[in-house]
Design a binder for these strands. Sequence first.
DNA 1: GCCGCGCCTTGACAATTATCAAGCGCCTTC
DNA 2: GAAGGCGCTTGATAATTGTCAAGGCGCGGC
Lengths: 232, 232
Amino acid sequence: MPEAQYPEIRTLALFSGMTDAHFEALMRGAYVQNFPPQIDLISEGEPSDFLHVVLSGSIDLYSEWNGRETSMATVLPISTFILAATVRNAPYLMSARTLEKSRIVLIPSQDVRAIFDVDGNFARAIVGELGQCYRAVIKAQKDLKLRSSLERLANYLLRQQKRAGGAADFDLMFEKRRLASVLGMTPENLSRAFKGLQPYGVAVNGTHISIRDQQDLERFARPNPLIDDHAI
Amino acid sequence: MPEAQYPEIRTLALFSGMTDAHFEALMRGAYVQNFPPQIDLISEGEPSDFLHVVLSGSIDLYSEWNGRETSMATVLPISTFILAATVRNAPYLMSARTLEKSRIVLIPSQDVRAIFDVDGNFARAIVGELGQCYRAVIKAQKDLKLRSSLERLANYLLRQQKRAGGAADFDLMFEKRRLASVLGMTPENLSRAFKGLQPYGVAVNGTHISIRDQQDLERFARPNPLIDDHAI
DNA sequence: GCCGCGCCTTGACAATTATCAAGCGCCTTC
DNA sequence: GAAGGCGCTTGATAATTGTCAAGGCGCGGC
């Protein structure tokens, strides 16, 4: 892998604490690849051969069972995915596909495990990352089990609004079909859910969202940091 | 904490790889406590002051939002809980209560973090544990998003059967009200779901389950290792 | 034994969510 | 500019799941 790419990867919390020697050992076996949109990168059930790092673009993590499919999460630059499968040397639990043209670093899993075995700082960084991932899934599960689809959508919009800077107007980051799957509903139901939020001052125009009455929407959504705050 | 308790804790994968000195440093600040049933040990939102280890009994991890409550998981001896909150020094995302009379070790979180900072083997053990926890929640989420309540119950029964030794007859491990909450449904709906599995050869008598036609139930449940196998 | 309590079940009904089938609108392509 | 494709929306309908109220059953206490 070309050294020019190193800096942006090195700045990741996961890699910033390790020694130069270990980092370079990791990068030696790694390579960067560009993928077009809608390309399957990994399939659930396969052995975890590579740790992936998204440099640009975006990735959909999804799962299938019995002919059904659901989006589990979206990975945005710059971050890694399938870390847990790599460190446990276990099969992937989710599949991954590019949503758009994406630039991905592939680091052989055995190299990650080898460095992990000898570099305490790397192990500690992985703990930080895994702990965050774990807590993110717990939050998602609380969202799913404790809220109706209308409440999930309302809180999703409030989270997106905050991510987009907090203004009353912002744009959805991906297509509604996928949003529906992430929120655990059908596209039809999402359409109706948007209508169901109109009384609370939510206006939708394509991917553009306007929150006319912040107070009103929040009164309905009842956002909770232990579910919605991704920083803690 | 009395040294007599050390061995059973020491055998946990989490603690078995660390040096004696570090282990004893951890145990110095720890103490064991007995709790009666139905006692709240921690509440979501509180700072994570202690890492907990269940020596005997059982613990319900649950969450609340907007007046609703759901069971997230059950912790059985001997294992730890709220490890992620401890290592990230973040507030608990779930509450915990004893289901029965339970014996719990409380290890000050700051001690855990201090040893974690200096003991690479401990850090690696935590990675193993967190990775497993993460993957368990991902499986639970796939179960929730991809299956109907009837399918979740059918697969739950097959998992329990395997845990109980694989015989056609076995007993549920906790009361149906809680099972319903774990499976993400109401008690009434669980009752009907049991009836709905009768055509597939499932007989229920109180907490006792008989699987009359293994093939038939499996054909309906379609268990999948990437959701149902807790070992991988 | 009998009572009372808690849990589970059942039935009737309501709300939520999914499915199926059009139809609309926008964008691309030719 | 017309045609076609694709994603989104809408309506009608069905399936799933939840709610409320009542009743049964078992178990411990008196």
